[in-house]
Design a protein around this nucleic acid. Structure first.
Length: 176
DNA sequence: GTAAGACATATTG
DNA sequence: CAATATGTCTTAC
């Protein structure tokens, strides 16, 4: 019986407890700030579908530092981090990689993301992919909004409110 | 200009 | 087949 295990980290940011899980080939899961540390772990387990988790610190201190700085209002670029997307379909990989390229403070629509991925009419499916986005923030799904300029669903615990807060954080910095 | 409803549309499980 | 973190159009305020 081969046991698969992943190492995870849970840390405190200015907005609450956040967590991440790393696999062999890169970052696997990232959890947005929750009020309670316990909720972060629950979320990780729910996403992973494995219970063999090891709390291990190593190799990801830089990312944790960047995330903490992000929530304190500093402009941070996450686009260089390696992601592990092996368990996702080609379509999802395409979408995630395109969304990942959206720069800090910039906003895209679901439709434009679909077009950029060469699936001009798959905007609905883009939303579907975002709903299962395992790595928010690094894949800035909060920067993807509806074509009419309004914010739509956000499945993280904070919902639309959290999405709005993150956009406010970024727009303020860009305005300065 | 806003809000609600219907329908088209692609991908996933 | 059903579900969906959309888009567009049509109505009616």
């Amino acid at each position: 019986m081969q046991e698969i295990s992943f190492k995870y980290n849970i840390f405190l940011t200015a907005w609450g407890w956040a967590g991440l899980v790393a696999g062999q080939e890169g970052l696997r899961i990232l959890v947005l700030p929750e009020e309670r540390k316990e909720d972060v772990l629950v979320k990780i387990k729910k996403e992973l579908k494995y219970n063999n988790l090891i709390e291990e610190k190593g190799g990801w201190e830089d990312l944790i530092k960047d995330i903490k700085e992000y929530f304190t209002g500093k402009k941070v670029d996450f686009s260089n981090w390696q992601l592990d997307l092996n368990e996702y379909t080609d379509f999802q990989k395409s979408i995630l990689q395109i969304v990942k390229k959206i720069p800090y403070g910039k906003i895209q629509t679901y439709k434009k993301v679909a077009e950029a991925a060469n699936y001009p009419k798959a905007y609905r499916a883009v939303g579907n992919t975002m709903a299962h986005n395992p790595i928010p923030l690094i894949i800035p799904c909060h920067r993807v909004i509806g074509s009419n300029g309004k914010l739509v669903g956000f499945s993280a615990s904070g919902g639309i409110v959290l999405k709005q807060k993150m956009l406010d954080l970024e727009s303020e910095i860009q305005a300065k």
